[in-house]
Design a protein around this nucleic acid. Structure first.
Length: 1178
RNA sequence: GGGCGAAUGGCGGAAUUGGUAUACGCGGCGGACUUAAAAUCCGCUGGUCUAAACAACCUUGUGGGUUCAAGUCCCACUUCGCCCACCA
């Protein structure tokens, strides 16, 4: 009998497949297409390892399965040949990357073929081939043309010895990979201009498309996190002016007697009482219009400096503006109180105003056409328009404000401040002048929680933030500089390693836009320069990082969100006789100082701490608390009061009574000085008190909000509260739900140009060029006259010149800077002398479109033809063990770009993606060259087990997504399985040869005579058909391990059936052919050999997949499990079509069951058709 | 810290989605063939109890729950893995 010898059959079939071009994919075929591939291979001198064997077999199995099913299946092959390792090797040895690739790649051909992978070699590609990278350059070209490319400076690792940039992997222990001796310097960071693709433009649509992909959830989540969308707001904080300079004021009166008599003197005295200098000149009293006389009077009699706030009331505002025009330097602020606006004066209806006419202030016939840019330029801080006294003018301001705002928005969004109102207007004007007085600098922060703005007690900038140096005060400068230097030295990784918060105060302050408080500005490396705006508002009460920072540097912490309890209709809601209210409360945790606590009892459902609302008449919290304690429980002798717990809030509603209360309470610990109730008449007479021990308090309290506060009081609240809650300490927003306040606050600030809703993405623009030799040159020419010029499309590719020395040039550029002949070029625009760009493209670009080139590898007119791409895209099956995020995002981006250009119908490249696990050593550690614990696939094959057994083991050991540990016994195991299939088939073939050939022909072909002679072989067919069904559906879902298990099971079954002989030869022939076809994706050589041994003349590799027949899926009899009270007590065999009553009856007759049922009453019988019967007895 | 997932014999793993837990393979034990070994073939192989078998009971990380029935669903906890990570 022919023995199973992979060493013989595998090379034989590999040669036949080669000669017959078995795996050549006809891209124009009429058959349905199937496009399966694994991630690109990066060729190295070491050849393929077990991880490659894993990856490429996974896609090979899918490609083969589909090819056998009748698809035109394409399993491409190519080389990701550009990149740093080959360049590093070249620098060290002088062997050019071109040469080393040329010597390495042929070795891979042999190894791929030895693995039996069904690659179409006629379409092989390599990214370092000019025919390929011409189109990689073209992608850059096209991106540039479409405005998707820009340059920007970024910090890069820099080796001062090489005078070159280093990649992360070239920095080893803080030193350059080539200069790592003890006396070599540590590498630093240097700002270098980099090329970027605007991938962030596509962030949102890629994110949304991610949800519909047929990928595993884990990989989709990785993509979603990588894109990292977060919704929030940008809020602008003005920088507070330094405290040295104080503002001074010039007030110009208007022409109404009332205002002159009241407003001006009052404002003047108010300001002077605060210690400010005020000039209020009595201008010559002319009638309207404003005349030069007045303007000159002001200029002559007043002094203006950079800190002057110029206030003009009514028509005084017009004078103020004319004065401002004449000044030769900027002033601090311009405040126009109750300005007179054009339509009002004309008596026209402002609504009829021509909307296209620029907004202006207007006085009588003297038309002041402002140059807004000039006004702004001469006003350092703010322009304030205040409606002041005359409320009737409000509509005009409302009309004017947005127009001025729109006109000025671009440059001065933060400068315009509108106020309105009546009585407190002077204070408002003062506030506007003093508190919002700011320098011309702003800091914009990104936050997802604008609702916590009132709790922002400091700002933190990233050390790299552009404003850091300009805002730092002289006293802080040296400390700040030291910190920046230190931060720059650290790599991202190192920064993350030490979680201890570090930071330095800049000496500067910003103005919190919601409450006008000055808050300090710090820098710290926990704020990242690349995300949001590189600056944050720190809310230490509600953010853990900020909290840690504030604790460490003793910065203020203000709670602004209170956790709250919702009482609904069903529960008891705290009540105090007031419905539909919203108020702040104070509550007293009263103790005698001796671990006894006082609770107030109204009835059994109302046991709580003493407390109540803060009234307007209460001076402060403490006064309110004393009043409540006295009123409700009659104590006035209080020894101490101190804060006991953070704010807690409660929201109670009762639909039935239409009660809707929102309260937020501060709890205080109150220690009594005497236990004597000094007032006997306590409120309403319905309050009584009880003293309980500390341990009893929790059990007695009936109000949940109080219980929560008690819990905080006892246990402390170590966790920073960062959830939704109710607003407290937040001015007008108090009592609002935080989610709602989040919208409201931003909306309100937006009106003042101080905030806007912003969606932020974590993904950054793609840095697409490297200062390296071994890559596709960036197709740009730098011309001294025309600047950056694209290489004309017809001049592509820019061929990478051959060099002798591959080390970087030493001036920060790649080795290409030394290739003088190549470098010097005529400018395509002006024809003058120019130089080529010396950066080369990131290899991620090469691998972001290679699947498209696979479809049209020899096209010299285009990157790919749209017709063939539209037929074959998307890739039906894609897998890999690395690059679940970056590579996938880039490939999706480039595909989407082509889709937008109309070159591709499909926006997504990969229909199905499987992120497979890796193979580790048997102890779970990674294989590594240094440990010498690697497993060489070729060695396994060479040992005689063959590629088929190796492939089958790799696919069988575990589900593909799981990491698998290499087991030396595994390949022998699958070898045994293949050997069993082999021997069984050989035995059958020998049996056939021993039979009379005419009888064989009859038994094989003639159905009737088969039946006559009893040669149907139903058992064999009933064994094989269910396995065909299972293997087919398992392969469809890449459940390779269970597919192989069921084929092993089938083999075992066939061995058992073999004992009855092979006389049912038709059935045996079918079973063995099917088995050979089904093992073919895993063991293609063995399968092809057996397929031919069974008499087939065509290859098993195409159109051979067996179909199952329903008729043989069902068995004649089935086994029913019989349970009693849910425990298995026996099984019965019944004909498959037995109905419920008959099955139950049969079960009751069963010997074992009888014993269990005896003496019990059956109270329920469960029947699951085809599965089980369960008797519930008692 | 966040997200996702997992936990089943001595080991890798299976379980049709709530219906006979431990398929298949490895390893181990026994037997056949052989002078012998390898290879091959045929058995057995979760635990307690037992010389062995039957029977019984227990068993899918731990503890509860839902259900006639839970590896599978729910709650809490423990441990592990992976990915992301000071993302505001």
């Amino acid at each position: 009998m022919k023995r199973y010898n992979p060493k013989e059959i595998e090379p034989k079939w590999q040669q036949i497949w080669d000669e017959q071009q078995t795996y050549h994919a006809d891209l124009a075929s009429d058959k349905p297409k199937y496009f399966a591939m694994s991630m690109f291979n990066y060729p190295s001198g070491h050849g393929i390892h077990i991880g490659h064997a894993m990856n490429y077999t996974i896609s090979d199995v899918m490609a083969r399965f589909k090819r056998q099913q009748g698809y035109e299946s394409y399993h491409p092959v190519g080389w990701d040949a550009f990149g740093l390792p080959a360049e590093n090797y070249a620098i060290k040895t002088g062997v050019s990357p071109q040469e080393s690739m040329a010597s390495i790649i042929p070795g891979y051909h042999a190894q791929y073929k030895a693995m039996g992978w069904s690659n179409d070699w006629s379409k092989e590609i390599a990214t370092c081939d000019p025919e390929y990278y011409k189109w990689t350059q073209w992608i850059f070209w096209k991106m540039y043309e479409q405005g998707m490319v820009y340059q920007d400076e970024r910090l890069q690792w820099w080796c001062t010895k090489c005078q070159t940039v280093l990649s992360n992997e070239q920095v080893i222990d803080g030193k350059c990979w080539r200069h790592d001796a003890a006396d070599d310097p540590e590498v630093g960071k240097k700002a270098v201009k980099q090329w970027f693709f605007r991938i962030t433009d596509y962030a949102n649509e890629m994110l949304e498309a991610t949800h519909d992909l047929d990928w595993s959830e884990a990989v989709k989540t990785a993509q979603i996190n990588w894109i990292g969308k977060s919704e929030g707001a940008e809020v602008t904080f003005a920088l507070a002016n330094d405290h040295e300079s104080r503002p001074n004021f010039v007030i110009l009166h208007g022409f109404t007697g009332h205002a002159n008599a009241h407003f001006i003197p009052r404002l003047k005295s108010d300001l002077e009482s605060r210690g400010y200098q005020v000039q209020a000149p009595q201008m010559p009293n002319t009638d309207n219009p404003v005349e030069a006389e007045q303007v000159n009077y002001v200029l002559e009699n007043c002094t203006f400096d950079k800190d002057t706030v110029l206030i003009g009331h009514s028509l005084g505002g017009a004078v103020a503006i004319k004065v401002l025009e004449k000044l030769d330097h900027p002033i601090e602020s311009l405040v126009l109180v109750a300005p007179v606006v054009e339509p009002a004066f004309r008596g026209e209806n402002y609504k009829n105003e021509n909307p296209n006419r620029p907004p202006r202030l207007f006085v009588d016939t003297f038309d002041i056409s402002y140059d807004y840019d000039q006004i702004v330029a001469k006003t350092k801080s703010r322009i304030v328009l205040s409606d002041a006294m005359e409320v009737k003018r409000k509509p005009y301001l409302d009309y004017l404000a947005p127009k001025i705002d729109a006109a000025l928005h671009e440059t001065t969004a933060a400068k315009i401040h509108f106020t309105s109102g009546n009585e407190p207007f002077i204070l408002e004007v003062l506030d506007s002048c003093l508190l919002t007085r700011a320098s011309d600098k702003n800091i914009t922060v990104f936050t997802t929680r604008p609702d916590t703005l009132y709790g922002a007690t400091f700002l933190v900038l990233a050390p790299e933030h552009e404003l850091v140096r300009s805002i730092t005060t002289d006293e802080q400068r040296s400390e700040i500089e030291a910190y920046i230097t230190e931060a720059e030295k650290k790599s991202e990784v190192e920064r993350q390693e030490s979680k201890d918060k570090t930071g330095v105060f800049t000496g500067a302050y910003a103005v919190n836009p919601v409450n006008n408080q000055n808050i300090p500005i710090w820098i710290a490396d926990y704020v990242l320069t690349g995300y949001g705006t590189g600056a944050i508002m720190a809310v230490p009460a509600h953010d853990e990082r900020d909290n840690e920072f504030a604790q460490k540097f003793d910065l203020p912490i203000t709670q602004v969100i209170a956790p709250y309890i919702v009482y609904d209709d069903e529960e008891f809601a705290p009540r105090d006789g007031l419905d539909n209210l919203k108020r702040r409360t104070v509550d007293a945790i009263i103790t005698d100082g001796n671990n006894n606590y006082l609770l107030e009892t109204e009835d059994e459902k109302n046991v709580h701490f003493v407390g109540g609302g803060v009234d307007k008449t209460d001076a402060d919290d403490i006064a309110a608390l004393r009043r409540e304690i006295a009123e409700e429980v009659g104590f006035t002798n209080i020894a101490s009061i101190k804060m006991a717990a953070p704010y807690n809030a409660a929201h109670a509603y009762r639909k039935t009574k239409n009660v809707n209360q929102v309260t937020w309470g501060q709890f205080y610990e109150v220690t009594l000085g005497s236990l004597a109730q000094e007032r006997s008449e306590i409120e309403d007479g319905k309050h009584s008190i009880m003293w309980v021990t500390k341990e009893e308090v929790a059990a007695k309290l009936t109000w949940k909000g109080h219980a929560t506060a008690w819990n905080h009081y006892i246990n402390g609240s170590s966790e920073v509260f960062h959830q939704e809650g109710l607003m407290v300490n937040s001015g007008e927003y108090d009592g609002m739900e935080s989610a709602k306040a989040r919208e409201q606050i931003v909306q309100d600030l937006e009106g003042k140009g101080l905030a806007k809703f912003v969606t932020n993405f974590r993904i950054r623009d793609w840095s697409v060029a490297r200062q390296r030799y071994w890559g596709a040159p960036v197709p740009i020419i730098n011309c001294p006259v025309d600047g950056q010029v694209l290489v004309p499309e017809q001049d592509l590719p820019v061929v990478l010149p051959e060099l002798k020395d591959f080390a970087p040039s030493g001036d920060g550029r790649s080795a290409l800077a030394r290739a003088t002949d190549w470098l010097k070029v005529d400018c395509p625009k002006c024809g003058g002398p120019a130089e080529r760009e010396t950066d080369t493209l990131d290899t991620y670009i090469c691998s972001s479109w290679y699947f498209l080139r696979y479809l049209d590898p020899h096209n010299s007119q285009a990157a790919f033809g749209s017709n063939v791409a539209n037929k074959w895209m998307p890739v039906d099956f894609y897998n890999g063990g690395d690059h679940a995020t970056a590579h996938m995002i880039y490939a999706r981006f480039v595909t989407r770009f082509f889709h937008k250009l109309g070159l591709l119908a499909e926006p997504e490249p990969f229909k199905k993606f499987l992120f497979n696990g890796k193979v580790t050593a048997s102890d779970g550690t990674m294989f590594s060259k240094s440990k010498g614990n690697g497993v060489d696939p070729l060695e396994i094959i060479g040992q005689g087990y063959g590629a088929d057994a190796l492939r089958t083991y790799l696919m069988f050991a575990a589900p593909l997504e799981l990491w698998m540990r290499w087991d030396a016994q595994g390949v022998p195991g699958t070898y045994r399985f293949l050997n069993r299939v082999w021997n069984l088939t050989q035995e059958f073939c020998e049996f056939l040869q021993g039979q009379d050939s005419s009888f064989v022909a009859k038994a094989m072909k003639d159905k009737e005579s088969r039946e006559q002679d009893g040669l149907q072989g139903v058992e064999v067919l009933q064994a094989v058909h269910p396995v065909i069904r299972k293997v087919t559906s398992d392969l469809e879902q890449q459940k390779y391990n269970t597919a192989i298990a069921s084929m092993m099971e089938l083999t075992n079954t066939l061995y058992t059936l073999k004992k009855n002989g092979f006389t049912n030869m038709f059935a045996w022939q079918f079973a063995l052919e099917s088995l050979a076809a089904m093992i073919a994706p895993f063991a293609p050589h063995t399968a092809d050999e057996l397929w031919h041994d069974l008499g087939r003349t065509t290859s098993v590799q195409r159109d051979s997949w067996p179909l199952f027949d329903e008729q043989y899926l069902a068995r004649d009899t089935i086994t029913l499990a019989v349970q009693v009270n849910g425990k298995l007590r026996g099984t019965i065999e019944v004909p498959a079509d037995t109905d419920q009553p008959a099955s139950v009856e049969a079960a009751k007759q069963n010997d074992k069951i009888v014993a269990y049922l005896d003496g019990h009453e059956i109270i329920k019988t469960i029947f699951v058709p085809g599965k089980l019967i369960n008797f519930v007895v008692r």
